[in-house]
Amino acid sequence: MATAKGKGAAASTPKKAARKIRILVGKPGLDGHDRGAKIIARALRDAGVEVIYTGLHQTPEMIVSAAAQEDVDGIGLSILSGAHNYLFPRVIELLRENKMGDVVLFGGGIIPDADIPKLVKKGVDRVFTPGTTIQEIVDYVNRRIQPRK
């Protein structure tokens, strides 16, 4: 697992908080496509977010346990294997079991439009699809996720 502290303050963070936003970028499942996850991790770091990247081939259990250990405010999952209908709900289930229901879960990858409403209903805050710019995701994180006090 790699951690990186954000460089400089995030210009677009609304209120200057004592603590920076902490995000876990995770790659659940067995797929090895990490181009997107790495770009997002780097962009969030450059925008002043503290990023923890799990690396590849994580189980939902490993992701939730890393999120608890690192005390993160949000989790971003990248899934390109088609297993999103199992992996997202399983992570949500584990977050609830661990009383971490306030951690914001978002994600992206190869996810057909038809599956997105079902994932949102189960508790995924936002699903980004191909073509999303880096800035849209950075803005979303800054707007939607507050660092814990």
């Binding site: 499942g29 067995l30 189980t59 294997s81 088609g82 297993a83 209908n85 199992y86 992996l87 399983r90």
Partner: peptide, 16 residues
Amino acid sequence: GYDSDSLRAKGEVGMC
């Protein structure tokens, strides 16, 4: 290198 009944395979069998 996992069989389909491995815990690691859950949700991924035949998907990709």
